[in-house]
Design a protein around this nucleic acid. Structure first.
Lengths: 105, 105
DNA sequence: GTATCACTGAACCATTTGGTTGACAATATA
DNA sequence: TATATTGTCAACCAAATGGTTCAGTGATAC
């Protein structure tokens, strides 16, 4: 749990990103999360499991319901990794790359 | 190509992230990319294909070699998506969530 | 022209993923 | 107690993923 592999893998599915987006508005029960999706509750439950394993949300058993809430911490780690490439998407990454290559490793 | 699904999926494998990291230092031939990895060149070629399909690198045929160079643009899109959650990992995302939930959707 | 290098494509394989259904467990309600 | 709600677990399935090997293609070097 919590490594870049599992974080990025968890984020690579639209349904799971939609679940996270929903949880930005506040915590939600699993059945409420499942309602808008055109799939079985079991399927949504599996997606929640993937997100939970990745540490992106926290499930709390309360009565017979499971309440999910966002835990964005792993996203920070993922973002930190991506940010290293910022220079390459902002401007002349092409030149920079050639420059670095020219300087010898 | 270029959607969040394929971008995050491409980033979810350590080998592929290592390839991208290597390309930060400048472009590289496929065989040079493959060298440090303990797997066949075919396997690396497949990873490069995944990255290429995701738009994260550009392959240019030059003579008999394939030269790969970084294209970080899709990372910006992924980062933009992640940044929306920044408030939830910086401070009291818990309180914020409860506040938003309390305010009614 | 022939051999070598760099790479792709096809076939294969094991594992994972994303979905289904049906049975069950646990909790709340009537 | 009986019943409905909430969710999990197990079994199953098709498709995708990540790797292999072997054969072939196209460009370079000798």
């Amino acid at each position: 749990m919590g490594n870049l592999d599992t974080t990025f893998a968890a984020l690579s599915h639209g349904t799971r990103r939609a679940i996270l987006a929903r949880l930005m508005h506040g915590e939600s029960r699993l059945s409420d999360l499942a309602e808008p999706f055109n799939m079985s509750q079991t399927a949504v439950s599996k997606h929640v499991r993937v997100l939970s394993d990745a540490g992106l949300l926290i499930v709390e058993k309360r009565g017979r319901a499971r309440h999910c809430r966002l835990n964005a911490e792993p996203m920070k780690v993922a973002t930190d990794w991506l940010i290293d490439y910022q220079a390459f998407w902002t401007h002349q990454f092409d030149n920079l790359a050639q420059h670095l290559a020219g300087e010898g490793d």
